[in-house]
């Protein structure tokens, strides 16, 4: 990817995009530098997924889920928020830039929002520049082994 098209991994709860057009766009028309990982609920997003994305070279990770009270599984997002925001703080503690992980909590009214959110995120990541923090598995950028 070029510097203007940072790699972004979008973890998306499969219930959070209500408008069919939005879901279609996310599934079929994402720009090449954006990668969709659909999960059954934000509660399914193991922090390891996020770490793996970053290690593998994602410049930014977006987590999109439902607003509170409208979770398909009632409170999956409530638990997920506690874990994922604590994880974001942990990564920040060891030197990762917290703005590279972004949460988007959406509801019925938000048709067309995901496109805008991704565009802003992309722009912000371009401004931030490339990062090497925690990037240890990116092809051609592999973390060496101590021997």
């Amino acid at each position: 990817m070029s510097a203007n098209q940072p790699n972004i991994v979008l973890f998306q709860c499969q219930w959070c995009l209500y408008a069919k057009t939005d879901q279609d766009w996310v599934e079929n028309s994402l720009p090449e530098n954006m990668h969709l990982v659909k999960t059954s609920c934000t509660g399914r997003i193991n922090p390891l997924f996020v770490l793996n994305a970053i290690q593998g070279g994602a410049e930014g990770v977006m987590i999109s889920g439902c607003k509170p009270e409208i979770c398909h599984f009632k409170e999956g997002n409530i638990g997920a928020r506690r874990q994922l925001s604590a994880f974001q703080k942990l990564l920040t503690h060891i030197g990762f830039d917290r703005s590279r992980i972004r949460f988007v909590w959406m509801d019925l009214q938000d048709t067309g929002r995901i496109q805008k959110e991704l565009a802003t995120f992309e722009k912000d990541l371009v401004d931030l520049g490339q990062s090497a923090v925690l990037v240890t598995r990116k092809p051609g950028f592999e973390g060496g082994m101590h021997d």
Binding site: L51, E142, M145
Partner: peptide, 16 residues
Amino acid sequence: MVSKAGMQTWHIIRAF
């Protein structure tokens, strides 16, 4: 392996 990725993941996730 004892690669950067393996070791860092261990330290981050064990703590988490």
